[in-house]
């Protein structure tokens, strides 16, 4: 299965420009008020991927982060991650402490003593595969795009490495690959999905805290999980229509 990417040819450009003005008006008229979650793909019958994380089940082992680096050739330095784990500790004095030593790969310690902890938990982070992704919107050449399955991808042979998408992602999910000078990010292991294999992080999680699947399929584990649990997305106010759902997400998590 090849990625059907909308490539921007010169002809499209002319066509698009003329349709642009009309399009803006139309979209603003036709887009009704929707829930903050993008549980449904707007159109089409194919797969529409989403991810859910059961925060309670995450033990902070960061196997997901480790396996992601190995699978996707992410640089080893602690400045480049497609996938990382954060530890949140809220003290009795309402102080929020967050840490993620080397994305969690170096293991977590808890500097706050037990009787001062109000609550503590781990939050794995990765690309939210936003349905209205700001990163795609700003890319000057269209190298960042959404696959028909709702996965935000980068065409590295086309990316000019301007870093605009890195600035536009509200969740810090992108980085510029130092070796290639182009943007890189989680692809939900697109290369594995193509072969009907699970993404590396999903395979690596020992507790089953991570679920992914087809939001269009009403019988999928993911769909039922979101339906049966109280799930929330990160920064809903930014209206990115994130498709990464967290079960029982604490408000402190940004």
């Amino acid at each position: 299965m090849a990625i059907k990417k909308e490539n921007f040819s010169r002809r499209d450009f002319i066509k698009n420009s003329s349709m642009f003005a009309g399009g803006v008006v139309l979209v603003s008229l036709l887009n009704p008020l929707k829930v903050v979650y993008a549980t449904k793909k707007p159109k089409g019958k194919g797969k529409w991927y989403g991810i859910a994380i059961d925060i309670e089940k995450c033990i902070g082992c960061a196997n997901c982060a480790r396996s992601c680096k190995a699978e996707n050739g992410v640089p080893n330095e602690p400045f480049f991650f497609r996938n990382w784990v954060e530890q949140y500790t809220i003290t009795n004095d309402d102080e929020v402490k967050v840490s993620s030593p080397n994305g969690g790969i170096d293991g977590f310690t808890q500097p706050v003593s037990d009787d001062e902890i109000y609550k503590t938990f781990f939050v794995p982070k990765m690309c939210n595969h936003c349905a209205i992704s700001p990163c795609t919107q700003v890319c000057p050449v269209g190298a960042s795009f959404e696959s028909p399955e709702g996965i935000a991808l980068v065409d590295k042979s086309y990316c000019i490495g301007c870093g605009y998408c890195v600035q536009a992602c509200p969740y810090g999910c992108r980085y510029i690959d130092p070796a290639q000078g182009v943007a890189d990010k989680c692809t939900l292991c697109y290369h594995r999905l193509e072969k009907d294999l699970d993404p590396a992080c999903m395979m690596a999680c020992p507790t089953g805290a991570r679920i992914y699947g087809d939001l269009n399929d009403k019988t999928s584990e993911l769909y039922l999980f979101i339906k049966e649990n109280n799930c929330a997305v990160l920064k809903p106010q930014l209206n990115t229509k994130s498709k990464l759902y967290y079960k029982d997400l604490s408000q402190e998590v940004h």
Binding site: N7, F8, S9, R10, F13, N16, S17, F20, Q137, V138, C139, P140, V141, G142, Y158, C159, I160, G161, C162, G163, Y164, I176, D177, Q180, G181, V182, A183
Partner: peptide
């Protein structure tokens, strides 16, 4: 990161950017 590709911005611009 890829300076030689800058002209792509002019020949295949992405209009929402």
């Amino acid at each position: 990161g890829q300076p030689w590709r800058f002209y792509e911005m002019l020949v295949t611009p992405h209009l929402t950017s």
